[in-house]
Amino acid sequence: MSNSAKTNIVRPYGDTLDDGRVQMSFTLPVPHSEEAKEAARQLALKMGLDDPAVVHAAPMGPDFTLFVVYGQCRHSIDMDTITVDQPEFEVLDKAAIDALIADSLGRKLVVVGACIETDAHTVGIDAIMNAKGFNGHKGLESYHEVRAVNLGAQVDSADLVRRVIAERADVLLVSQVVTQKDIHVVNLRRLRQELDRAGLGQDLIVVAGGPRITHELARELGYDAGFGPGSYAEDVASFAMQEWLRRHGHQRGRQRGERP
């Protein structure tokens, strides 16, 4: 049945190679009953699971039922066909990033960060910008060669663009946490338009981040990179510096204070 070793085709792994076992949980808006369980089983079949087993069904009030279902996934994936759009950079540590900035810019890298428009969540931008950082990864404020300007949350796009110009920012970090009804996409588009209107298309490196942000989405919206969960300041700073070098032809030893 399996020639996955040769062709690199994979299926979910339960306790035996290629058994295809997966778990899932979902709710149906029906009262808890034998019919409800059968409906959940048939739904799993339609989803491509063989031998689905409804291992748990719990009434959640009179109108809803929760199901936990196991089954064997019919589908498989050829790993050789997989490509993922991701930002290209080598992750450097804080000291190496500081050294690279000192060596390449001869001045501090100016990074402006904000969570824009209606979004009131600072947790993402703080994790990257604040000196303390997150999970033991120091934030950009603690980098000697970075001037980090954290504008916090609910920053209007037009205000942000004015600030980017006033601060002469090299890098703009934009966080979006709330994603209900794709509000993050709307907000990021609006900011991109404001940036373009202000003529900040070329020089400024613009990075989006947030729990639902992927590099692919960010690129699609006209951003240079997107960072999702589990990204730290060194990831963003490494990307930003390497992107800066790409754009500026690896020029080194520029005069202090001279703008690229």
């Binding site: 959640m60 009030g61 009179p62 428009e117 209606t118 979004d119 009131a120 609910q154 709330v178």
Partner: peptide
């Protein structure tokens, strides 16, 4: 909220739309 109350919630908070505070 009805469903949550039926499941046992004692208190229901209706979160505000982001940005209303301003």
């Amino acid at each position: 909220a009805r469903a949550a109350a039926q499941q046992g919630a004692d208190v229901i908070a209706v979160i505000r739309s982001t940005g209303q505070s301003l």
